[in-house]
Write a protein that binds this DNA or RNA. Structure first.
Length: 572
RNA sequence: UACCCGGUGGUGUAAUCGGUAACACAAGAGGUUUUGGUCCUCUCGUUGGAGGUUCGAGUCCUCCCCGGGUAGCCA
């Protein structure tokens, strides 16, 4: 009975839950960590972040917030050969844009280099770490394989004092790069490769973006990560699934040190159809010149999505919908696009814009006359009001909205057909003018003055409503039409011997330079988002200049007619 | 032929101590409509397989099959 009451009580506010939140709920209930929750998001500052990272950010910051805890931002900067300040700045900007705040808790693994060193000394004294003189190649060879055990390093049983001395000299710069390492003394026959005496320090002369040339030895990820978590008092260290095999090592270090011991929990990374979410591949796309930069609107980087016209809300809604689990999965990009349309539909003012213009001449409309038509700014938002759109004898309509020979189910303009010009008049097509090549250069029609505003007093109906723009008033604009970057659902599925970039969509970008838009868009600000009626959502690109507008198509409207056409083609 | 982790409709997730498969997207069909948009309605799975325990199993047990990860001095 009480069970029923409980479940009905929760109906209205469905509690978000997943296996991680369940674990944390239990930990809190058990009074672990004094009932507190602290998380962190630990990016390596060596690349721009993408929507897959946003998933991790959302989990870490989101969970901290839900459990009244804090989430730190910590840059995992233990490899100076790859990390740069530029990425630190870009990552911070992207996290803020997503709407998360780490307040003053901006940390760096490099902040802990001294403490890490002290701990290394401690492990040596415990006989749990040793300096190894094997080369990288030799270490690799003696590690064994997935199915065969490793063998002990000849330096494994060096006396403590010698280890201490050598480590100190490693730090002092007495040895060349790569000549020695500090290794944890664990188990060379362990079935988990990570436990076969993993490297803790390597000698590496590289200028670090924060510590400069202070160090010539740098901790590895495994040696730095858990201890950094511990120092910060993290309670739940949430990371992606590829670190699962590292958890025993994470636990081993913390246990040997006897310090605060966060719990590591792993979740599956995000995959989305028709795109790639791996740093390596993103870098290849940019460096290979396949896209124009990390903020190319075709890329799933946060910078790219932002430029494409996504809002942070879209991404967060999407992430909330896909949930969190451990199973490998690939989310249909259409779910992302659904979130996008839903959000943009509510907030985007409507305008009329013609991508591929063709002249429409209204023969019985007075020469030189201009009428101001009242157009609704946003049917989803009454407070958005209306605006006046100039109407005249010569207009532009969409080339695709006229067919000399209309196919089945096509109910737009064609000879003899009557359609509505949105917010204006009913017009009936009377003929066309063609050039020598037979291309339609002008469509002629007559209008019915009684239908002003778009309603017929006699109640007659039309099947189609077209968008339009007055030829003498409209602004010319550039419009960039984007499509999926890849032609395959799984871009990494490519024939043997071929290059994965063979799956790139050659039509992922089409630039239209001769589009016409309403004059009310003249002062549209960079980044502003609009719906061009019947076409899709567009935003003003940073390349845009006064008098030389540039729009990015964020996403098309759902297009039933396109589906019909596709089905018709497939059927024939 | 090692170890770890997974396997619910086309996709992504739900399903409290085992109690009779839910939500969203997609797809298809229909309705409304001054955007072939939005909105509304309907259709589409018996939970990888085989056994077992039980009044009852997606949830427990056994075996099998399939998928992913792991052999950087990357993270």
């Amino acid at each position: 009975m009480s069970n029923h009451e409980k479940s009905t009580g929760n109906k209205e506010t469905p509690e978000r839950s997943d296996f991680i939140r369940e674990i944390i709920k239990r930990d809190v209930a058990d009074g672990k960590n004094g009932g507190k929750v602290a998380t962190r998001w630990p990016p390596e500052p060596n690349a721009y972040i993408h929507i897959g990272h946003a998933k991790a950010i959302n989990i870490n910051f989101g969970i901290a917030e839900e459990f009244s805890g804090k989430c730190n931002l910590r840059f995992d900067d233990t490899n100076p050969t790859r990390e740069e300040q530029e990425f630190v700045d870009a990552i911070k900007q992207d996290i803020r844009w997503l709407g998360f705040d780490w307040e003053e808790r901006e940390y760096y693994a490099s902040d802990y280099f001294d403490r890490l060193y002290e701990w290394a000394v401690e492990l040596i004294k415990k006989g749990k770490a040793y300096v190894c003189d094997l080369s990288a190649e030799e270490v690799s060879k003696t590690r064994g394989t997935l199915t065969t055990p490793g063998t002990h390093s000849p330096y494994r049983n060096r006396p403590v004092d010698e280890n201490l001395d050598l480590l100190e000299r490693m730090r002092a710069g007495e040895f060349p790069d790569g000549s020695r390492t500090l290794r944890a003394k664990i188990d060379m026959v362990h079935p988990n490769m990570n436990m076969r005496d993993p490297v803790m320090y390597r000698i590496l002369r590289a200028t670090h973006h924060r510590t400069g040339d202070k160090w010539c030895i740098y901790p590895t990820y495994d040696w730095a990560h858990g201890q950094s978590d511990s120092i910060e008092g993290i309670t739940h260290s949430l990371c992606s699934i590829e670190f699962e095999n590292h958890r025993p090592l994470y636990n081993w270090f913390l246990d040997e040190l006897g310090v605060h011991h966060p719990r590591q929990i792993e979740f599956a990374r995000l995959n989305i159809t028709y795109t790639v979410l791996s740093k390596r591949r993103l870098v290849e796309l940019v460096n290979g010149g396949h896209v124009e930069g990390y903020d190319d609107p075709r890329l799933p980087t946060l910078a790219g999505l932002r430029r494409r016209g996504y809002t942070p809300e879209v991404i967060r809604e999407f992430l909330a919908l896909i949930g969190v689990d451990k199973t490998d999965s690939t989310v249909d990009v259409q779910l992302l696009e659904h979130c996008l349309r839903r959000n943009l539909n509510l907030r985007s003012p409507r305008r009329m814009g013609v991508l591929r213009p063709v002249r429409l001449v209204i023969d019985n409309y007075p020469e030189g006359r201009v009428e101001e038509m009242e157009a609704v700014n946003n049917p989803e938002d009454a407070s958005a009001g209306t605006r006046a759109v100039p109407f005249s004898k010569v207009l532009y309509i969409e080339r695709d909205d006229f067919r000399e020979v209309p196919p089945p189910k096509y109910w737009r303009l064609a000879p003899g057909r009557e359609v509505r010009l949105r917010y204006a008049y009913f017009v009936t097509c009377t003929g066309v003018v063609k050039d020598d090549a037979g291309n339609v250069v002008e469509v002629h029609c007559t209008y019915d003055p009684a239908t002003k505003g778009g309603d017929a007093p006699d109640g007659r109906k039309v099947k189609a409503t077209l968008h339009w723009v007055s030829a003498e008033h409209a602004l010319q604009a550039e419009v960039r039409l984007y499509d999926h970057l890849f032609i395959k659902k799984d871009p990494t599925d490519y024939p043997e011997g071929a290059d994965w970039t063979a799956n790139l969509n050659p039509k992922s970008l089409e630039v239209i330079t001769n589009a016409r838009v309403e004059e009310s868009l003249a002062d549209a600000a960079v980044g502003s988002r609009w719906q061009f009626e019947r076409l899709g959502y567009f935003c003003v690109d940073p390349d845009s200049r006064p008098g030389a507008l540039v729009f990015n198509r964020t996403v098309t409207l759902r297009d039933t007619w396109a589906k019909i056409q596709k089905a018709q083609k497939a059927g024939k």
